[in-house]
């Protein structure tokens, strides 16, 4: 079980409501996209789920257990993984140190974490080539891979990604999404993807929520949403 359930979440930020009674659900093994314009509350949803923001109202359940008041670092141990907006790799740490920091919650299982490191290098060979380099010297695409790999090092049950395509060349975005698809298909990882590139996200995800001003405006299966005229007009554009 690794379902995530958010019920009636409200978060105020400097007087304004960043989230307004938001409810979403991600079931075990699902790939769900969270879409919407800038400022719709996508990042806030992920940050609240990771325990970085305190909700004014509402509840968050993970694996059927309420985690609303659980401190952020303990949620990682419960199985939530988060690739933050803008990657946020540690530039002065080496690539390998970044990955090792991802194993913090599993630090007592040395053999296992060494294996995970090898697994990650298998999945992202370019990180292996650069494992001794300071992470700050990586290219945008490599840094994004590192951010994803680092989050995977904690063996999350659910992986939340905040705009992994941001700042990447179109070719790299496709490559990135190919990895995500593989992780979901081959390892059965539950994924919650926040994305600006709505069309791409809808091609990957099974379901999607479209947020507007902090609440869910439209929800449904991806294939229905792609053909929904409301969605096409507001979020997909006509050309893409």
């Amino acid at each position: 079980m690794s379902d995530l359930r958010i019920e009636g979440l409200t978060i105020t930020y400097g007087g304004a409501k960043a989230l307004d009674n938001l409810s979403i659900e991600v079931k075990t093994g699902e790939f769900v996209a969270l879409l919407g314009a800038n400022g719709a509350g996508k990042t806030t949803t992920l940050r609240a789920t990771s325990g970085l923001m305190r909700p004014a109202a509402g509840k968050i359940f993970f694996d059927g257990v309420e985690i609303t008041k659980v401190p952020g670092h303990k949620r990682t141990a419960l199985g939530s993984g988060h690739v933050p907006e803008g990657r946020q790799i540690f530039p002065d740490h080496t690539v390998e140190e970044n990955l090792q920091l991802g194993t913090f919650v599993r630090r007592k299982h040395r053999a296992e974490t060494t294996q995970s490191l090898e697994d990650m290098y298998g999945l992202f060979p370019r990180l292996k080539e650069r494992h001794k380099q300071a992470a700050g010297t990586l290219s945008g695409g490599e840094a994004q891979m590192l951010a994803v790999a680092r989050a995977l090092m904690s063996r999350p049950k659910i992986l939340m990604l905040d705009e992994p395509s941001l700042g990447l060349a179109p070719q790299l975005v496709l490559e990135m999404f190919k990895y995500l698809k593989r992780l979901h298909a081959e390892q059965g990882l539950t994924i919650l993807l926040v994305e600006q590139q709505a069309r791409l996200a809808l091609q990957l995800a099974q379901r999607a929520y479209i947020l507007e001003r902090g609440s869910v405006k439209i929800e449904g299966k991806s294939k229905d949403l792609i053909n929904d005229p409301r969605v096409a007009e507001a979020y997909l554009g006509t050309a893409s």
Binding site: R47, S50, G51, L52, P71, G72, H73, K74, T76, A77, G81, H82, P84, Q88, F90, P91, D92, H93, E97, Q100, L101, G102, F104, V105, R150, A151, S154
Partner: peptide, 19 residues
Amino acid sequence: RSIRAIAHNPDTSTILGIP
């Protein structure tokens, strides 16, 4: 290494499970 990570970005450290 975690201490150096916290200095750089406390939020990111938290989501990696660092107290």
